[in-house]
Nucleic acid binder design. Structure first.
Lengths: 282, 282
DNA sequence: CAAATAGTTTCGCTCAGCGAAATTCTGTTT
DNA sequence: AAACAGAATTTCGCTGAGCGAAACTATTTG
């Protein structure tokens, strides 16, 4: 009875303005579930319950309940021998279905190929998901050796050209959340200073392109540009990756022009003529 | 309403011995979430909230809460213009991660290629997820035209050779659940009679292969065999698909021998020598 | 402009899901 | 083989997260 009163008391405090859902963000068990899946996908093999719970900062029973529900659904699998958990086949099937629904991939195909052929570099397309880029397709330029990335890869948000473009055009809350994380450096050239990043993001919104030199791996540069749809909404990011000597730092004017031509045309096909309005493409 | 009564009824009955979780199977909000994702993946484009709720037999607010949580996580996306929902990029990324963890794909690669070359037919590898097969890889035999399936596809459980093998080696409860659904016929040769299917499953457990003739599409036959790991646990299914005249009904002895040789060797690599114990491979 | 239909929000009630602790299972050490 | 250690599970009572009904707000349609 007393408890009920306490509960009522707490409740009485919440109402002013804020909705309850807004405070936590949404259904908590779903958030937990997808955090678990994220953690499983970061691990590079099956992982034990105890480990998993520890990494997530959760208690074992909670993680266990979520895992066993998802196991019953085929979303995760459990190794019969070791009892460890991994991602299941159903998840793969859902991923493929998601891919099919991204018509962007099909639409962008020809532009990517053109970009590759005109620059003689491997061309990439990614889409922003929750402020972070995910590589959708990779059209390799086949030289004696080829530099490439794989669909499904997630370039680091803070120190890759694709990542920073995704950040530049996402909403403030998401940007804050991502930049609030620990920003790891992959090389001594990786930008990890928050001020420096914010400055870059500002520049991106003006220039409509971004470079990343030696930031993920020494000797490799990247150059990317945003693709918009409709009302200046970021639909994707296209770009090229190549060696430092080929792309240059800063990147060759010629490459930027070529990149802008493709990004502008693709955006136009998606019903956004911003590149033309800003006279970035003739 | 009915739901409420049933739930109350179960609860009143449950306490003696049975765990509460067991009754429903797991966390309900997760089940709901993945049913929603399934429905979204079945639809071939973005779909409205009302439609979705109706198809699922759920109320709008519940579906809405789940969708908006997953939207915030990047799992689903919402078309800004129409308000419709689709699968998001994050799901694709998770799917790719799941794929990487299936070392089976890498291990099976050479066996699939050999199977293709020795039979001159397109070879397939699928894995069972929750009693249903999901195509992991497809190695095409390139003739003037090629018959093929796409990774991520889910062959029908009841009327495909892969499906019935998955069914044959899954647990009774799952089998019952799947066969309890409406079994649709794709052609006039699709097997949909439950008795006939059970008989086939029995045969599969004896012969270690299954054929499907004209069941998914007229003129196309398939022949598959189970791949086991460790202790006779079904790890995957490999098989070939081709025209009726090439594969034959019943399939040519020669093809079965070839298939068994690859399935047996692959299973052996996965630590299960059952094919050798049963003298199906010499 | 009303009517219909879409997505979204609110609100109080209640049962699903929580955490602590117990238990079982498995592999290792003594 | 007993004792131990460290996993994965399961139990159980409490409580607030998530539920449904109903209200609300844009759009679309007749």
């Amino acid at each position: 009875m007393a408890k009920k009163l306490i509960a009522a008391g707490i409740k009485a405090v919440t109402p002013p303005g804020k909705s309850r859902a807004e405070a936590g963000g949404g259904l908590q068990s779903l958030q937990a579930a997808f955090r678990i899946l994220d953690e499983l996908s970061n691990a590079d093999g099956p992982i034990g319950l105890t480990d998993l719970a520890f990494k997530l900062g959760e208690l074992k029973p909670r993680v266990y309940r979520h895992l066993s529900t998802m196991k019953a659904l085929g979303i995760v699998i459990q190794d019969a021998r070791s009892g460890r958990y991994g991602l299941g086949g159903k998840l793969f099937a859902l991923g493929e279905a998601a891919l099919e629904q991204f018509d962007l991939r099909a639409v962008a195909g020809p532009y990517l190929t053109r970009l590759r052929d005109q620059t003689c570099q491997t061309a990439l397309l990614s889409v922003p998901a929750n402020g972070e880029p995910i590589v959708l397709s990779c059209v390799e330029y086949l030289d004696r050796l080829s530099i490439s990335s794989r669909p499904g890869n997630r370039p680091p948000p803070h120190c890759s050209s694709q990542g920073r473009i995704a950040l530049a055009f996402t909403d403030g809350a998401t940007r804050k959340r991502i930049l609030g994380r620990k920003l790891t450096a992959f090389t001594c050239h990786s930008i990890t200073d928050r001020e420096a990043i914010e400055e870059r993001l500002h520049l991106i919104r003006e220039r409509f392109f971004e470079e990343a030199n030696d930031e993920v791996r020494m000797g490799i540069n990247a150059l990317s540009a945003p693709v918009f749809r409709d009302d200046e909404q970021l639909a994707g990011i296209i770009g090229i990756i190549g060696t430092s000597s080929e792309i240059g730092a800063p990147p060759a004017k010629q490459l930027i022009t070529t990149l802008h031509r493709q990004a502008g045309a693709l955006s136009a096909e998606l019903n956004c003529r911003i590149y033309y309005e800003h006279n970035l493409v003739k």
